[in-house]
Design a protein around this nucleic acid. Structure first.
Length: 460
RNA sequence: GUGGUUGUAGCUCAGUUGGUUAGAGCGCCAGAUUGUGGAUCUGGAGGUCGCCGGUUCGAACCCGGUCUUCCACCCCA
């Protein structure tokens, strides 16, 4: 009895073609991270739930994949709990581990645990999958890869500045036109404070974050629904609607938020960041100070970032921000960090739809030798060794199949050159080299093959 | 988690009011061409109609459940 195989909902297999394209993204990202002096780090797929819970808000806790304890996980659990309806209580008793939800919290955990071996400020990058028990949709998976860059142990706004440069570079290299949106949690706190609802920041920010989507009217409605007083809403609106260049927005905010120490701090932080960008920037990517940007993760305390593709709507493909006290809950105070996360899977989707992957990715083998049998194959293998030594990827068709079949194979694999060595070629110590794009075929002496192909093959 | 949607050949999809052997295009395999691919022609293989159950003399079609896909909300990379 065989069962139809399948994989869990929201997960995917990646075929060789897909992996070549994914690696293209990972390589680009990794190269940039490393260029900016960040060091690689990996942490386990699973963490203790105590590490994970309570870091992502109520919604985040719900979306955590929990791992059932091993062994007799029901031992010692009161039957009254098991028969009840409080699944939360049950899961707490039978699960002590969970799959990581992002890379930032495990990073904070790592920093606290290894503080004595780390040289601060610590710059690390981490490219690994994360898991969320979300309902899958387009661009939303239950297992997806994040590419995180963070620097921890430095308050300097220069870090924010460099992250913007990294974002700019990565997306320029990938050829994706994006817009970087920036805001600051302290400004948001100041705005809420100024409006007379400092204790309702979460409700306010979560709602105005949807401005783009549901419009002013929608925001007003939802704020009312969340129990925000009309006069508060009235005071909020003009601020959110501020327009113009970042620096002029900030200028206006200074007077609006004059009564809020926190708010002013946020404004000056943003002034510093945009100051660097003006002075040293030369960044081609559009950067916008978007006062409606909030971001859900509730550990952010300063700058927040979000990147969207301009030519297609796929939600945010990169996001992050500054967190002043993520390590605090693990017992390490005064350790501010800032970082962003590139969503590899969404970047893939964007690039795929916009056709941005280079054709050349598909051609791994540059030269294929046809196979006429054992005797001829040996002749070819000698040449192949020479090619490989010169860095030209080459392969021999493994079976002495019909030539049509061998050519078909080369065609489908996008192999640029096919080398034919049969009886007549061997007699003259030659090869017939066929260019599969032009269809031209030349006869080359055995000794000249490597040189000939080196000259013909498009580098890169 | 709430509401909706989708599932037929490897892929994209037809399939009448429930009625014998479920179709097409593309792809695949073979041949036309026993050392030359992308074109053409000929032939061929390939389907528990997502899965389980129910209604019926009879189900791809109707009903229920379940899984999957996509969408909205929620939230987010």
């Amino acid at each position: 009895m065989s069962q139809k195989p399948s994989i869990p909902r929201g997960t995917r297999d990646f075929s060789p073609v897909e992996m070549l394209r994914r690696n293209y993204i990972f390589d680009t990202v990794r190269r940039t991270f490393s260029l900016y002096g960040y060091l690689p780090l990996e942490t386990p797929a699973m963490e203790n739930l105590t590490t994970l819970l309570g870091k992502y808000g109520e919604e985040g806790d719900r979306l955590l994949f929990r791992i059932l304890n091993s062994g007799n996980f029901l031992a010692g659990i009161p039957p009254s709990v098991l028969s009840g309806t409080d699944t939360q209580a049950v899961s707490q008793l039978i699960c002590e581990k969970g799959l990581r939800y992002d890379l930032t919290v495990p990073f904070a955990r790592y920093v606290v645990q290894h503080r004595d071996e780390i040289t601060f400020p610590f710059r690390r990058y981490q490219i690994q999958p994360v898991w969320r028990a979300d309902k899958p949709q387009k661009g939303r998976y239950r297992e997806f890869f994040q590419c995180d860059v963070d620097v921890i142990g430095s308050d300097s706004l220069l870090n924010e500045f460099e992250l913007v440069r990294i974002i700019d570079r990565v997306f320029r290299e990938l050829n994706i036109r994006v817009i970087i949106k920036v805001n600051n949690r302290k400004i948001l706190a100041g705005i809420a404070e100024m409006a007379g609802a400092g204790d309702r920041i979460t409700d306010i920010t979560v709602t105005i974050d949807k401005l783009d989507k549901i419009g002013q009217e929608g925001v007003r409605e939802e704020l009312t629904q969340r129990g925000i007083a009309p006069e508060v809403i009235a005071r909020l609106e003009p601020v959110i609607k501020l327009s113009g260049p970042a620096l002029s927005k900030l200028e206006e905010l200074k007077s609006v938020l004059s009564s809020s120490v926190t708010g002013l701090k946020g404004v000056s932080e943003m002034e510093e960041l945009f100051g660097y960008l003006e002075a040293l920037g030369k960044i081609k990517t559009d950067i916008e100070l978007d006062l409606s940007l909030a971001r859900g993760l509730n550990y952010y305390t300063g700058a927040i970032f979000e990147v969207k593709a301009k030519d297609i709507d796929f939600g945010s493909i990169c996001g992050g921000g500054r967190y002043d006290d993520l390590t605090g809950v693990f017992g390490l105070k005064d350790m501010s960090g800032v970082g962003v996360s590139f969503g590899a899977d969404r970047i893939y989707d964007v690039m795929f739809q916009l056709n941005l992957f280079p054709e050349s990715l598909m051609a791994s083998t540059k030269v294929m030798f046809t196979n006429f049998g054992r005797y001829e194959a040996t002749y070819c293998l000698n040449a192949i060794r020479n090619l490989r030594e010169k860095g030209i990827s080459a392969e021999l068709y493994p079976d002495a199949a019909k030539l049509k079949k061998q050519f078909d194979y080369a065609n489908k694999r996008n192999i640029q050159f096919v080398v034919i060595a049969g009886e007549s070629e061997m007699q003259n110590r030659q090869f017939a080299v066929k260019n599969m794009t032009s269809g031209e075929q030349e006869t080359i002496p055995f000794a000249n093959l490597t040189e000939y192909l080196l000259g013909k093959i498009d580098q890169k």
